[in-house]
């Protein structure tokens, strides 16, 4: 099994930096993309793929793997960046992102990409699929876990709350969900579109083991994943990750927040340069 990626000495900081760099390179290929989200979630993905999860890079359908469901399919650029870093998708495919016949379409779909376990795009699907996968894994006697990433905007969807109730009802302690609270959705700040706070208290009231962390603080994120994996009394786990859109590229962090952030043609190189100045060991 594989914890192959953990066996070496590459730091999580460097993993997250590599994921950001892969994502920016894909953004540059297409001249567009949900790059601000990719940058905000890179630390969570680095922790999931290089600290928490069990998988075999060259056997993405290995039965003993932990499953990772990308519910917010528009974050595909971020997940591809992580799958490339994890060795599940070859790095050269990065150049094909979003092009005809590519295995890396703009929105994540199960049949296109190794390591992509569901078809996202239509928001609010992932947690329901996760409930079924967790029930199935328990039925098989598997100790694999299901990790599900979704966005704060998806909290608007009633189906998400159906799944939240269901996971607690069925005592799915093999489920670790991560909600990216970057407080930005299509029509503006998520809390202004449809308020969901106090989120931690709500989810606790629904019977989940809930942690709220700075999603760009790697040590906090790592501790949250560790706690989520340890015994939690038969409860599913939710990590609320408060993140900063554009994280790691100061001029994108400072840009007026927008769901689909505009990056001009020359700025992709500026973004890479800004990132390269901050290369961790």
């Amino acid at each position: 099994m594989s914890t192959a990626p953990f066996g070496n000495n590459i730091s999580l900081e460097r993993r997250a930096w590599n994921i950001r760099r892969n994502a920016i390179r894909m953004g540059e290929v297409q001249g567009q993309g949900y790059i601000a989200q990719a940058l905000d979630i890179a630390d969570v993905l680095a922790t999931a793929y290089f600290h928490a999860m069990r998988y075999e890079p060259h056997n993405p359908e290995w039965e003993g793997r932990d499953r990772f469901l990308l519910s917010n399919g528009h974050y595909a650029i971020a997940l591809y960046a992580a799958l490339i870093e994890a060795g599940i998708v070859p790095e050269e495919e990065l150049e094909t992102y979003g092009f005809d016949e590519s295995r890396l379409p703009m929105s994540g779909m199960a049949s296109y990409t190794p390591g992509m376990e569901m078809s996202g795009g239509s928001l609010g699907l992932g947690l329901s699929i996760a409930v079924g996968k967790c029930l199935g894994l328990k039925r098989k006697g598997s100790d694999s876990r299901v990790y599900t990433l979704f966005s704060d905007g998806e909290l608007d969807e009633g189906s998400v709350w159906e799944a939240i109730m269901s996971a607690a009802h069925h005592r799915l302690d093999n489920l670790i969900a991560i909600v990216d609270v970057n407080n930005q959705q299509a029509d503006g700040p998520s809390t202004g579109v449809l308020g969901f706070e106090p989120l931690k208290e709500k989810l606790e009231a629904f019977g989940w083991f809930v942690q709220r962390v700075d999603g760009n603080d790697l040590s906090a994120v790592r501790a949250a994943f560790d706690a989520a994996k340890s015994a939690n009394g038969g409860r599913p786990s939710m990590i609320i990750a408060d993140t900063l859109m554009g994280k790691g590229i100061p001029f994108l962090e400072a840009r007026e927040k927008n769901h689909f952030i505009r990056v001009d043609g020359h700025e992709w190189q500026l973004a890479l340069a800004a990132l390269d100045e901050r290369k961790p060991a």
């Binding site: 409930v131 079924g132 098989k140």
Partner: peptide, 15 residues
């Protein structure tokens, strides 16, 4: 919860 029902059925089938 029919949306959950079919989403979860998909997850079950995937396993």
């Amino acid at each position: 919860a029919e949306q959950l029902l079919f989403g979860a059925a998909s997850g079950f089938a995937a396993e």
